[in-house]
Design a protein around this nucleic acid. Structure first.
Lengths: 119, 119
DNA sequence: CAGCATCCGAACCGATACTG
DNA sequence: CAGTATCGGTTCGGATGCTG
């Protein structure tokens, strides 16, 4: 999805910006990222569960195709929301967890999700 | 997107549900709805601006195609997040505003968007 | 176990055109 | 002014198969 372009909602003319609202435009990359499938649940699970392995995520989220999870994890890493730690073991072990940004997000997400959940 | 099916994140086996988290599954219809283009900005604008006309929304959001806005508004109405009031005038006037549910959403959304905005 | 490559169908968005 | 109808391009997701 497109990133940096202005949507006009900030440089509005018709609507007077007398209210103290900030700009909620095409909403920045982060929102785009978490709008995609499984992204939100990933963040939630990591938030409430702490470091989690690839396979655990697959099970818990009921991910249909492995590659999809992989893609989503990479996107979340690019956004700096989660981080990956791999252990030099056999069999291989990799754990994903929230960065401080990710935690910040998860906290702000919680009230929304709790509400959505009962609606 | 699919609604009612279980994602496995609630009926988990691997992850112990000892934490007090609620289920943040395929996340309910509302999240799907607001994930689509312009949906979030619509809610934000209506929240900070009050009742707003179709054309105003088009301008403010920088909507590219009229039909897209139309679709989004209908979806938001189906979810019970916004409502439509039409006035019997010439030229026709229609105003959209948040329902109480919509306001609830907008409030819970604000901290998230403010954070996303500066990130 | 962890994860990428590929192919195909579905959903979504944008543009244009046309009505009450 | 306030929309709906249609259509083509693009992006996303699901399935399968293969590697370190």
């Amino acid at each position: 999805m497109s990133e940096g372009e202005s949507c006009g909602c900030c440089s509005s003319s018709t609507i007077t910006p007398d209210t103290d609202r900030t700009c909620y435009c095409p909403v920045n990359g982060i929102i785009d990222t978490i709008s995609k499938k499984h992204a939100l649940p990933i963040v939630s699970v990591l938030g409430s569960n702490g470091p989690t392995r690839y396979n655990e995520l697959e099970e818990v989220l009921g991910v249909t195709s492995s590659s999809l999870l992989s893609t989503r994890l990479n996107e979340l890493m690019s956004e700096g929301l989660i981080e990956r730690q791999s252990f030099d073991e056999i069999p291989p072990r990799v754990e994903y967890s929230l960065t401080s940004d990710g935690k910040e997000l998860e906290e702000r997400l919680r009230p929304l999700l709790e509400w959505a959940d009962e609606a």
